[in-house]
Design a protein around this nucleic acid. Sequence first.
DNA 1: CTTGGCACTCCCTGCGGTGGAGTGCCAGAC
DNA 2: GTCTGGCACTCCACCGCAGGGAGTGCCAAG
Lengths: 336, 336
Amino acid sequence: MQEERRIAVLRAIVEDYVATEEPVGSKALVERHGLNVSPATVRNDMAALEDEGYLAQPHTSAGRVPTDKGYRLFVDRLTNLKPMSGAEKRAISTFLDGAVDLDDVVSRSVRLLSQLTRQVAVVQYPTLSRSTVRHIELVALAPDRLLVVLILSTGRVEQRLLELDTPLDDTALVDLRSLVNGVATGELISEAIVALGTLAAARPGPAASVADLLVEAMSDHRSHERLVVGGAANLARYGDSFDSAVRPLLEALEEHVVLLRLLGEASQSGTVTVRIGAEGPVQELSSTSVVTTGYGPHDNALATLGIVGPTRMDYPGTMAAVRAVARYLSRILDEG
Amino acid sequence: MQEERRIAVLRAIVEDYVATEEPVGSKALVERHGLNVSPATVRNDMAALEDEGYLAQPHTSAGRVPTDKGYRLFVDRLTNLKPMSGAEKRAISTFLDGAVDLDDVVSRSVRLLSQLTRQVAVVQYPTLSRSTVRHIELVALAPDRLLVVLILSTGRVEQRLLELDTPLDDTALVDLRSLVNGVATGELISEAIVALGTLAAARPGPAASVADLLVEAMSDHRSHERLVVGGAANLARYGDSFDSAVRPLLEALEEHVVLLRLLGEASQSGTVTVRIGAEGPVQELSSTSVVTTGYGPHDNALATLGIVGPTRMDYPGTMAAVRAVARYLSRILDEG
DNA sequence: CTTGGCACTCCCTGCGGTGGAGTGCCAGAC
DNA sequence: GTCTGGCACTCCACCGCAGGGAGTGCCAAG
């Protein structure tokens, strides 16, 4: 029985602290929330919660502030997210439905997400690993220069330039085109890599060069896991703790490698992952939390999207927004 | 004679203020710089400069601070930029020489520029208007779906998807390909637009659709004047005047339309343009300055690059860095 | 035109006092 | 055993105030 109330107290403290940005005391707590107990009781609970590491005091005789561990418990015990309001739902669908191509969908999503959460939003392009090859096109720019265009099922297009040792005539080009397409088109990236690898081994010369280049373009995931970031202006709201918090975050936002590590593995579509403060992989960002989820057509988590913000954030609202955007985005990918 | 000294005083004040970030007084000024006059004389000059609007006092009995007009005079009278040190030159060339393609060149440039100036750097992709068409490729994804790939002399590649009303067979495709290439390849964008326009009028059907799409892709400058931004972490150094200065700037950095207006027309290659405070087109950014220059092969200013920073910045060093990066970048485009 | 001197202004800093919000603990009530 | 009211205590945030210092403007003399 007391256990339950303690959770309620923790929850109330988190909510108040997030709203007011100030340490919250026992008296204000019972007044603002309908707790049917006296401040003294709450004080006892708070002392216990502090002993267990869920709360902290900036200094003696000040109110309590949640610790990372406190936020963690808050998030874990909180199964019911804030539902999106009707207006928000409408905003999401009208905002995303107007998109014309993949780039547009992604950039709209990132803007939408940052506006809904008032945090910095990050959206990863659908990763290559689970998409398939739709078409490979070879364009002869010159007899010995080839433009290799790779078109994927997600609508993504990669192009590479290839310098050939020996010139290639038109019929050879046509043959080569149908050869690589025959091997790779329709296959998963992972399978296409294998198929092209064996092709390169079997047929030295131009075919091998083209196949190698394609394998490289497909394998080199890291460099192609493109990210879009938006809503950095929301960082201006940090106010206090500036150089310590905002600077490393701004740096991380430009270093896509760091950002990818921060997003982590694409979690299952539908599950929202929350990484609080020092739980994340980047030490400099110990005062920021990351809320992510996977998205993709047919509930395949092709990629990750989410937000980055201060540990003191509105977790229910943020998690709900992240999930909602991911769902709409998945649905759009289903259709396209 | 006095006129000259006044300029020297203004210059000294600007230098000190930029270095210390604090209002500078007469005594400190004569000590730090080798002015062979007394503080009283300097005070008279300062009073005169204030009357003319070049200086301002935060409050009575405080030191002086340059106004926008003061910075303007400082920049105009300052023909000799700080030369780059040998180490800096080496850094620039090694940094840029490793680039493999246009994307890489641009992203390296932006990083380099932000590191050299410790400001936010912006680099615009070479604009379409003065580049020529290298090749147009048509790829049949399906009988009625065409991928149109436009390759420009700058190395830029644009692709568009086209849904056809009527399917197109292979020979028709080959014809169409050679038709549009015959008309457009080698031409300036502006000329290619005209040629394709007449082609579209003369030949209804698929040819017109393709030509229209190409014209649209070429004409629609705004949406294609891509920008890359880097070094936003340097904004963390703003410290004071935060919400008023950094927030609008962060917003502008994400709104590429605003940013393009900020960069302005590509100034002649070799000339560095400085826009100080309210001289710029965006009111919210009245406390930031923009330093830009044009770049491009053979001294054609294909595009603009530059930095955005507080009005209180090291103009000589910044201008020199901007010019140096633009030169190296132009040279690389010459070779490629 | 420059310079030294002088009175004046105003900000910044440090200091002590006060008020308030909050805590911890204890004894009593349920 | 748990909750509650009361009480003493702590400590921060705020305020007013004085002192020092950096800077200015002005004036008379070189």
